[in-house]
């Protein structure tokens, strides 16, 4: 088991003929992901190292039976690409595009909810998702993800930051702890999939025994997750919140990471998670150590 994707997931890459789409699409394929096609308007009928390219998502779906899409197109084109994938019946969309205007994101999110309730969007501005050994969609380097082990306890990862997602994978690999699925939800203001969506899936996933959550300053997503954990998550968890030392009022790169009006501080988020029974580390390594202790105690 894994959440959202597995070995049967068939992926198309929107923007396969572009630099990022080609590089990461081929890496995903090399990892073992079923990359069944690409979409670039005007380039239908060509191929990228044997992967057929189509003019539209609808054509690609009809020809390949794809049920997931990996979107690697520039910010101007990404909102339309997401809606095109949803309209073509794609159930799971991963959009790695960084720099989409917040107004566009909000519109896309609410359009999906209303018109395509069966479609799940991961991102934008996220690293993607990997179920080690089964499926890797996005920009995560597959080799840093430890395979889940039968008969052992495995961990689910959910993270708001791209590079800290890799850091979390790496911390577990160092300790030989298997990963069921690792989801990078992205740090933008309106993520298609949030912490709670992932926590719910992990709680219901028989292969996931414990969960690591990586948050960061800004917004209230971690506080909302803490409420959800308190009421619904029985699996043990460790967490890390980035930005303890970030100065207030400064935007730290992500559209999301800003402390304003005393709200969205790392301290407030850590307190909320601790109150929900989550073990909180002060850096990614400490969160890894805490998870190792958890695994030991439940094994």
């Amino acid at each position: 088991m894994a959440i959202f994707v597995n070995q049967d997931t068939k992926v198309i890459v929107q923007g396969l003929t572009g630099g990022q789409g080609k590089y990461h699409g081929l890496r995903n394929q090399a990892y073992g992901t079923q990359v069944v096609g690409g979409v670039t308007p005007g380039k239908g009928g060509t191929d990228v190292e044997g992967i057929p390219v189509f003019n539209s998502v609808a054509e690609a779906v009809a020809a390949t039976g794809a049920n997931a899409s990996f979107i690697a197109v520039p910010p101007k084109a990404a909102p339309a690409a997401i809606l095109e994938a949803a309209a073509a019946g794609i159930a799971f969309i991963v959009c790695i595009t960084e720099g989409i205007p917040a107004q566009d994101e909000a519109k896309v999110f609410n359009t999906l909810i209303r018109d395509y309730p069966k479609t799940r969007l991961l991102g934008p501005n996220c690293p993607g998702i990997i179920s080690p050994g089964k499926c890797n969609i996005g920009i995560t380097a597959g080799e840093i993800a430890e395979l889940p082990k039968a008969g052992k306890k495995n961990v689910g990862i959910v993270s708001r930051s791209g590079t800290l997602t890799y850091q979390a994978l790496y911390e577990l690999k160092q300790r030989g702890i298997g990963v069921s699925t690792c989801v990078g939800i992205g740090g933008d203001p309106v993520p298609g999939t949030n912490f709670i969506d992932c926590l719910r899936e992990f709680q219901n996933d028989p292969e996931t025994d414990a969960i690591i959550m990586i948050g960061e300053i800004g917004g209230s997503a971690e506080e909302e997750a803490a409420e959800f954990i308190k009421a619904n998550v029985t699996k043990p968890m460790s967490a890390y919140i980035a930005g303890v030392t970030a100065p207030a009022g400064k935007k730290m790169g992500h559209a999301g990471a800003i402390v304003s009006g005393g709200k969205g501080t790392a301290q407030g988020k850590m307190d909320a998670l601790r109150a929900a029974g989550v073990k909180v580390g002060l850096n990614p390594t400490e969160a890894g150590d805490l998870m190792a202790e958890i695994i030991k105690s439940i094994s």
Partner: peptide
């Protein structure tokens, strides 16, 4: 650092081991 999250985390870790950061610099993805 690459990525806002890792850059923030780097600031945190430098602070925890007794140092002070001169800046936040995210070189971004790619």
């Amino acid at each position: 650092a690459n990525g806002a999250g890792l850059a923030m985390s780097t600031l945190d870790v430098v602070n925890q081991v007794g140092g002070t950061a001169a800046n936040f610099l995210d070189i971004g993805g790619g």
